[in-house]
Design a protein around this nucleic acid. Sequence first.
DNA 1: ATAGGGTTAG
Length: 390
Amino acid sequence: MHRTGVPPSRFTFSSVLNACARLPAILEGKQVHKRLIQSGLLPNNKIVETTLLDMYAKCGFLDDARKLYDEMGEKNSVTWVAMIAGYGKCGDVKEARSVFDCVRETEDASCWAAMVACYAQNGCAKEAIDMYMEMRAREVKISDVAIVGALSACTQLGDAELATTLAADVGRLCRGRGVFVWNALIHMHAKCGSLDLARKEFNAMKERDVITYSTMITALADHGQSQEALSMFQQMQNEGLRPNEVTFISILNACSHGGLVKEGCESFELMTSVFGIRPLAEHVTCMVDLLGRAGQLERAYNLVMENVELANDPGIWGAFHAACRLHGDVEMGEMAARKLGEMDPEDPGNQVVLASGYASNSDWQAAEKVRKMISGKGTKRSPGCSWISG
DNA sequence: ATAGGGTTAG
């Protein structure tokens, strides 16, 4: 960038820092930091300092971000939010909260929103809702970010009553709502039990994106409407939207729920051949589940072997093992049990699996007793539900 | 012209 002899401007530095943050690429980011100091643009340039801080935070180097933050003197809401979000992304809710506590007296709406989002992203649904309610009580401005955090928290809680309240808030407070709000709203309705409301919001949208469709596909599958999920997938492609790896997890999951073996295999093929998406462990797990439940254990096994780079994934072997049990294939089941035991011997679920895996063909019933003893539970299992977790 | 926060699977 300095071939021309013209020294890079602060704008050039900023866009390079943004690229480092997005990748993320900490080594390059640190290089830029050095050159900023060499070229005299630092210190005493708040915007450049904040960009740098955000780069460190997005790369997960919160200590470096914190150092800049502490040395910065006067802060503003952009700095605070970058710190809160940075701590939130690496799961440090406590530190995020301590930054928030330093500024909460200013009633800065973006800090409140960032904190609600941080709670929601880290599974602290209750705290997110409490904070959102406090925002309402104190009449802090509710932005799209704040409401999305609250919707996501409610989704985690599956609280239908709260869902009604929040949906009304969306109508009241977010008139020019963006696609993030729509998507979070649809997801909340679906998980809180109302596929109808999810559908209604979906139909009212004028601009949908990949996430909108992925969310609806999962919603339909969860409510037992696998065929509709497949139509949704088709509609999405007709709209010219490109499915991503999460969309395919949704669609394979829908096929698995509905026992749609042919459609599932076609979708998997479409994903790898047409869209060039390399299968993740989640995709293979769905396929093993789908084929395994249909009794096609050998096909399931072959699929795992075709994706042997994922063969250390416990989820895949767990699904395979469950299928072996469902169809009484003792030999394959033992093999899967050994794999699980090798992968994570400490896992109590795997110890249970291993106990049954040690059994010889004639000893299957004895193994069943051992297993019952260890788990301390009965053997009731519902179709489609792994006996390990059940 | 340069800075921040969010939604999908599991």
